[in-house]
Amino acid sequence: MAVCAAIVGKDNSPKFFCCVNPDEELAFQFKVLSSLDIIEEKLNPTNKSASDNRELYLGQLYSLETCKIYGYVTNTKIKFIIVVDSTNMALRDNEIRSMFRRMHSEYADMVSNPFYIPGEAITSKMFDANIKSIITGTV
């Protein structure tokens, strides 16, 4: 189970942020921000290593002592970020990948919602609950 998930827009402004432990939200925000540096570098078109642009999953971005951070970027440059506790060995790359995919489809549903204005922060409680259940693995 992951401890935090974030959706960041094309302009790097946060669209959605959720944390299992709300007290640590600020600390996680900083971690997510730091990992945006890596994402930006990976998306940098001058960077040759960004080879296969069909692959949305970016893999592990950061491995800190307390947590591991994974990234995923849609074609429209919406960034999904998942933070996993580094003591958690149960989550393999594949699980993370499928977590991202489910997050992506939730986000796609959200964007299709006529009451949501794309580009604004997501405030839907339903969405929040869905993402939380994805990252905590209760789905």
Partner: peptide
């Protein structure tokens, strides 16, 4: 510029 209001608030 990146509108991280939580961070800004703190």
């Amino acid at each position: 510029a990146e509108q991280w209001w939580g961070v800004i608030s703190s």
